[in-house]
Structure formats: C-alpha cells, structure tokens
Design a protein around this nucleic acid. Structure first.
Length: 284
DNA sequence: ACTATTTCCTGGATGC
DNA sequence: TGCATCCAGGAAATAG
C-alpha cells in the first residue's frame, strides 16, 4: 500500500531510470477504470514528450514532460493552436499499482493497463491488479496536491488543519485534503509515537499533543523514506527492491502482540473502515 | 460545510 | 482438494 515513503522511493527510482527518455508511443488497455483522463488525451499528451523529471507530490508520481517534436515550420503555424510544450503525467498507484521499467521483450504481466514505449527501446508499464490506481495528464505543468505536504508543513499550519474538527484524529490524518501522503500505516505509527489514541476527536487535542504529532509524523515519514518504505503485501520499489521500514513498525499489523514500550497487547479498532492499531496504555 | 458510510477491485488467507 | 467467504484499503461517491 504505497504511501508517501513508498511513493517517494518509487519516484526517485523512476527518476534515476527514465529521466531524459522520450516517450515514443503509448498503449492503453481496454478497461477504462484506471484512466482518469480520456485515453486519447493521455496518449496525445504523452507521445513525443521527453521525461524531464520524475517526482512525488502527495501520493502521486508526477512525470514532468516537455515536447521534443519538430518545431512548427512557420510563424503562422506557430500561432495556430499548438499542443502545450509542457505537460505532466500523473500516476496514482492506489493499493496495488506498480510502475515497471523493462526491456520491450519482457513478458506482459497480467493486469497491465498502460505501456509507454520509450525511444530507447525500453518500456514503462503500469500494472495494477486491483485497479484502484489512476492515470491522468495535466496539459499545463501545474499539478498540485489538495492538502499540505507532511514533510514541509510548519507547526502553525499543522495546528490550523485540525481546528474545530470533530472527526477522529486518525481520519483527519488520512484526509488527503488536509495532508497529502499520509496513509494507514504512517497514521498509526505517528499516533503511537505521539501518544495519541486514533479515535480522539481532532479538535480535543491540546496544542502540546498536536505539536508532538507534528514532530512524530515528520520523524516517522523521514525514517521510512530513508529505509525505502515499508514492504507489506507486495510492495517493491522501481528496482524490485523491498523497503525495510516494516521492521520498525511499532503498532501497525501487531494486534495482540506486546507493546514494545509497556508490553500490553496492541489493540485494533476500525475507524472509517480502516484498521487502526494502538496501545491503550501508551496512547491517551 | 462537515462527517460517516458505501463502493470499487482482486489475490491471498481462512474455514468447512 | 475444492469452493465459498472474508479481508486488505485510497479515495470518490453517496447519504445524512
């Protein structure tokens, strides 16, 4: 389940492997579900573009693109409607989405929904069994996440995010319109490190508690990025390498196991349809 | 304007 | 072994 650290790891790997490559042509699968933009628009936007850079915004992978096609032959034509020279390809991996870079003769995996044929002969493939992932294009280069970047948000803005919110703090952390990039694992891990129960109403948290949460969230995300993310289920990065942050999980996926601080069994409750793990002794 | 719930989707785990 | 059922969850859609 790719969250900020996993997407960051994948985006860095993709940047290293396909930066500077030109997308020659694009194949899109039959089923339209993973396509947020119309297929024809995706294809026409991606083709004959150079990948200038690959980076992460929230949980999205952003490909910054620039046209490489022949210049218009005349000034008159240049004035006519030209496709934008700059554009962005936005990929959301959902739960099970993967971006593979491989030689063209590599066998096409089941659930392959999109293939970008690169001028070098290699291919960039989007594979997503559960089809929660989404592909879209931004004709200009102005994609922005809805919420704040967790690694950049300062304390005053962080405090402001939760003011007056009656929803459980866990739900608020998962709300991408508030913070972009936090998912189930890192919400649970940050709340444990901050000593806050996931069901606590966001608005009832003290300034001191939110300050602690602000620090805990940044700390846990940075540590996870440094370790290449958490490999649970089948997550691997762009090179097929697993992350190691799952070895540092203190509550996520540890229901019934002893708290690493106080030895009390870790509890699991469902909040907004999501498993939430916490220690009833250490978190209040 | 918020908040809570439902829905989408498939593979792996579980139970009989 | 086989078959049915449940579960995982990001985020959009829907309901309240």
């Amino acid at each position: 389940m790719p969250e900020l650290p996993e997407v960051e790891t994948i985006a860095r790997g993709l940047d290293r492997r396909v930066r500077g490559e030109v997308i020659a042509s694009v194949w899109l699968g039959e089923k339209p579900e993973p396509l947020k933009s119309p297929a024809a628009e995706i294809a026409s936007t991606l083709e004959r573009k150079r990948i200038e850079r690959v980076r992460r915004v929230g949980k999205h992978i952003v490909f910054d693109l620039e046209s490489v096609g022949a210049r218009p032959p005349s000034a008159a034509k240049r004035k006519a409607a030209q496709p934008p020279r700059k554009a962005q390809w936005i990929v959301h991996l959902g739960m099970t989405g993967r971006m593979l870079v491989c030689p063209a003769d590599t066998e096409i995996a089941k659930h392959t929904h999109a293939i970008a044929h690169l001028a070098s002969g290699r291919e960039l493939r989007f594979v997503d069994p559960r089809r929660f992932g989404r592909l879209s294009v931004v004709p200009q280069a102005d994609f922005a996440a809805a919420g704040a970047e967790p690694l950049e948000v300062d304390l005053p803005r962080f405090l402001e995010l939760f003011r007056g919110r009656k929803t459980p703090i866990k739900s608020a952390l998962l709300n991408q319109n508030l913070l972009s990039g936090v998912g189930n694992i890192y919400a649970d891990e940050a709340l444990f490190r901050a000593g806050i129960r996931p069901k606590r109403q966001a608005a009832t948290l003290t300034r001191e508690q939110l300050t602690k949460l602000h620090q805990a969230l940044k700390h846990v995300l940075k540590e996870a990025v440094a370790l290449g993310g958490s490999s649970v289920s089948d997550y691997v990065d762009a090179d097929g390498e697993e992350g190691f942050f799952q070895l540092r999980h203190r509550v996520y996926g540890r229901e019934g196991e002893p708290c690493l601080v106080c030895k009390k069994p870790i509890k699991r409750v469902v909040i907004a349809g999501r498993s939430s793990h916490y220690c009833s002794q250490c978190q209040k």
